[in-house]
Structures are given as C-alpha cells and as structure tokens.
Amino acid sequence: MTSRLKDNMILKNISLTRGLKTIFSSLNIEFLCPGLNIIKGENGSGKTSLLMMISTLLQEDRGTIVRFGKLKKNDWLNEHILIKQNSSLSDELTIEENLKIWCGLKGWDFNTDKIEKSLKNFGILKYKNFLVSECSSGIKKKAELSKLNFDESFKLKCWLLDEPLNHLDENGKLFLKKIMDKFINMNGTILQTSHEKKINHKNFKIIKL
C-alpha cells in the first residue's frame, strides 16, 4: 500500500491534435493521487479528449504521460475504468445482462446477487429486466455508474469519469459521492470532468483547461 501512495500521475509537455485541430500544446499537469481531480473548462476545451488520452484511446503527439510509476499499457488497461458521457450499454440487452457481460469481459466474477446489490444501491433494481432501449437517460446513466459499485472496481487504481453527474437525480448524486469518497479513502484516484460549481468533497484539486 505504501508503494501505491508514492505512485503518481503526471502529464509532461503534452500536445494533442485531432484532425486539423490542436487541442493541447505543452500541457503540464500533476494530478492529486490519491484524491479527486476535477477537470474544468469550456465546451470544446478538450476535457473528454484528456480523459481519452490518459485512458490510451487517443495517442498523444508529443510529451510523456506517467501513469502510476511506469505501468505497462496492458496493466494500465486493467487498472482503470473510463465511464464516458454517452452510455456504453447495448440496446438489445437488459440492464442486468449488460452489467453481467461487462463484468465477464473484465475477467471478474459475475453473479446475479452482485449485480442486483449494485443496482439496488442506485435505486434501479426494478428496471433490471428492462431492455436498455426502453430506459430513460437517467436510468441508463445510473446503470452505467453501477459499474463503479462492484467490489473489484474499488480495488482499481483510477476512475476516469466524464461528466458523471449529467442526467442524475439528487439521490443518484448523493450515492455517487458516497462511492467516490469510499474509493478515495481506499487510496484511489478519480479524474472527473464537471461543470458543477458546488463541490461537496473535502479533498480535491481543480484543474482548469
């Protein structure tokens, strides 16, 4: 655990272009590890691109990203979760099936009790047998965030959350805060993009793009 505390996440002199548009040039950030990092910026300032780049979905043009010491790419893929703004649930499957298969794909154990418990905490247990195409965006968002509420998720190093508060009701926001606090207490690092002015967490760092 002590070695994990020493680990950190740093962006050094990063530049990124998508198509013809330059998104960052010489970007330097040191993230708070463990802790909550809130990335703020105007629309189109590159918040989502930053998360995608850290998650290796986008390749930086120049510079280096230090991900918890020198973690290999494959280890890093198994050590973080990226929850994107748009839902990544299959419309043809029910919410329960989506989560079950997602756990399976990660190589984690998948049993019905585990998924039901996670859905119950978010208050959407009654929708578990609904096809995703039949659900509202709030329920989809809660189902998506239920991925963070598995025991295995708390053992990871990092969560990358792209505007997780969108479409959420008050109860959803409260529960999300609860699990985020739990994760940080377990030495986890969270990178969250947000437009919210009021931040209820105690220990956080704001990064402006």
């Binding site: 198994n78 298969i101 399976g104 295995e152």
Partner: peptide, 18 residues
C-alpha cells in the same frame, strides 16, 4: 487482481448469442 479468462469467453459468447 485475479482475472478469469473463462469468464471473458462465456460473457463474449453470451452477449453475441443474445
């Protein structure tokens, strides 16, 4: 963390089949 490759295979086939 322990990764169960059998689970990955089952999940993948189940998803495609459904």
């Amino acid at each position: 963390m322990k990764i169960n490759f059998k689970n990955i295979l089952i999940a993948l086939i189940e998803k495609e089949f459904k």
